[in-house]
Structures are given as structure tokens and as C-alpha cells.
Simulated assay, not measured.
Amino acid sequence: MEAQPATPARGGDQEQEEDAMDAFLDKFRCQQYRGRLHEDTWEQELDKIPMFMKKAPSEIDPQENPELACLQSLIFDDERPPEEQAKTYKDEGNAYFKDRDYKKAVASYTEGLRKQCSDPALNAVLLTNRAAAQYHLGNLRSALNDATAARKLRPSHMKAIVRGAICHLELRNFSEAVSWCDEGLRLDSKEKKLLEMRAKADKLKRTEERDVRKAKMKERKDEAQKGALLCAVQARNIQLASPGPDEEDDEEPTTPHGGLGSENAMGARVSLDDGGRLSWPTLLLYPEYGQTDFISAFHEDSRFIDHLMVMFEEPPPWDLERKYQPHLLELYFEDEDRGEVCQVSPESTLLEALQHPRYLVRAWTPAFLVLVKQSPFCKNFLRGRKVHRLK
């Protein structure tokens, strides 16, 4: 019988391993684990662990969040293929978009586009998504540019067509909005958004065209009225002052007296009736009390006294002395070029006053001074001025 080889004893090694494990466990029994979560602050501590974060910080400090910084460096590793990097930025942008953080979404999509990956479909998605984020930020032009660029990469990309049409509609480019909708409907004739948008854009387009036609008709009518007014004024030998630098209209004048017939500060204007007679917005000034009366349509054949009789039938509240009575009133106008005043008879018509060789209509609104005859204020007001009185 052959002798068997001796087996080395292992009892000693096993005992050593068991002793080492016991020592390791004894260490935890007498020493607390330093990485444990504390009872009072466990929620805040848990929120610092990348896997359990509810929201990533906007700025990552490697010293405060080393794990997150390491994870970010892995995700955005520049050594990865451009397509992978672009897709990562797309996903990040989508997450920001879902949280309505549109500025960060735009930044993420832009970074994805900067990777210049060779996948046109992915680039079209990045552009389309950035267009959506720009739209929510109110950057309609930028959104439209992105949608247009996305369509160049993928002409049949429906989301780019829808977003481009929306931008055109918001920018009041109604014809372009209709065109974009039509192109999308050729791809999908039942696309609900495009059908609704096209109907709205078409309606607004027709309304805008109608308004443009009305505006042009009104402009032609106004020009014809201005021409008729100018002829009527010139036929009466009424002098119109050229507008000063501060009075010029924004529009180019179409006559030597540009703006004739335009509304004055009170919203009234010179008018020509069917009988060919003029009515003027007219100011009566009472310098003694700093008061005025405005007659919106003073017919040229009406007399001053007729208006004064109605206006002073009852004393105005500022005439405490009740001295402004029609038969005691005198009318004047100022000749500003000569620094003189000219008297006008209350019995005269407006046309007769306007035809005075020294009268100059300013700002399309005749103005006359009203004073109480022989009153102290009247004498003082006229003192030192050359007065051309009626004969």
C-alpha cells in the first residue's frame, strides 16, 4: 500500500483570517462611521449626493461638490464623439425646457450645435428645440431663424414648420404664415395645429388687406379735401402762416401750406361744407383773466357778436364784476411781425376778419383778443402798442 502525501495544516491561517475579521468588526462597534447621515440634517446632506439631488446647482464648485463635478466631466467629455456630446446637450436642454428655464435651455442647445456633429437630423432637432425656447423668451426673430435653419436641414421636419408658422403669425407676417402652413399641410393634411393656424392667419391677412385699402382710400379722400380747402382759402385771399420748426407735421407737406386741414391741438380742423363755405376752429382769448373760449366750427359767414351774445348770455364764473357784456366788448388781433394790434368790429363776420390784409392764420386756428372797452386793463394792455383802429 502506497503512502499518501502529507496535507499541509491550514488551521492556523483560518484562525488568523477570523481574528482579522473580528478585529475589523470590533472597530465599528467602538467607532462611529464618519460618512453617516445625521438625524437632523439628513435631507440636506442627501441632496448633496448627485443620485439624490432634486435640482442640480447652477454653478458647480469642484471643492463643494467633487462627485458632481466628476460626473459632469464624464458626461461632457470632449473626447467622446461629437454626436454623443451634442445629444447630451440636447437632453440637458430638454430638461431645462421642461423646468421652464428657457435661458439655460437655449444655452444647452447652442452648445450642442457648436459640436458640429455630422447628423443633420440631430442638428435639426437642436435648432427646432432652441426655436421653441427662444419663442418662450419672446425672441421671435431668433426663433424664426432657428426654425428656418432646421427646415433647411430637414424640409419635412413638422415641428420646425409649426414653430416657424407660429413665429410668422406672431410677427404679423400673415402671408408667410399661410405659406408655411400650406407646406406643412402638404406633408400632413390633417395636422390640427396647422389647420387652425392657417385659418387664423388667413383671416388676419384679409382683415389687414382690407384695412390697408381703407387707409389708402381715406388718404386719397383727405388729399382731395386738402386740395379743395387750399383752393377755397386762396380764393378768399386768406393768408396762412408757414409752420415753424416746432409745428411741422411728421408727414411731407403736399401743398405750399403743408398740413392744411390737419387737426389742431383741440382735435378740430378747418372744414368745407357742401355749399363751398368754410368753418374754422377759432380761439377767443381773455388776457385779463387768462381765460379762453374755443369755437370748434366758426362759420365764415357768422358774426362775432352773434357768438358773444350766446357766450355771455350768462356771466362766466370768472367774471365776478359782470363787466363782460357783449355791447362792452372789443376785438383785436395781434400783428406779431410788426408788434402791433389791429381792431376788429364785433359786427364783422369771421371771413371779413380773416381777409384783413394784416391777418395771418397760424396753426390753422384763428385767434382774437377780447377786451372790455375803456376798462383799466384794456388801457394798460394797449398802452405802448401801436393800435390800428377801425375807421
Rank of each mutant, 00 (worst) to 15 (best):
G384F: 03
V212K: 15
E84A: 09
G227I: 01
A105L: 11
Y324I: 05
D306Q: 11
R383T: 06
A107H: 12
A131L: 06
L240M: 12
N129A: 06
E92G: 06
Y89W: 13
F381W: 15
R362I: 03
E83I: 11
Q85S: 02
A20K: 14
K386C: 05
K192Y: 08
A215R: 15
A353W: 00
P243E: 13
S142R: 04
F174L: 02
F76Y: 15
T292K: 13
A160G: 03
I60C: 09
E336R: 15
I161G: 04
K192D: 12
C181I: 10
V270T: 08
N237K: 15
Q116A: 13
A177C: 10
V162L: 06
L390W: 08
L354P: 00
E183R: 04
T349E: 05
P287Q: 02
H299L: 08
H327Y: 06
D306H: 09
S179H: 08
E300C: 08
R277E: 09
P82K: 07
G267S: 05
A224S: 13
Q14L: 13
L37A: 07
P155R: 10
K190F: 04
R100K: 15
Y96T: 09
K159E: 04
D293P: 04
D146P: 00
R385S: 06
P366L: 09
L140Y: 14
D78F: 02
L350K: 07
L137M: 12
L25M: 11
H307G: 09
P81K: 09
E17K: 13
Q16P: 02
L390F: 05
E17V: 12
F28G: 02
A133G: 07
Q4M: 07
A177I: 06
A353C: 11
D47S: 08
E45K: 00
T148H: 02
L74G: 02
D337A: 07
P8M: 05
G339W: 08
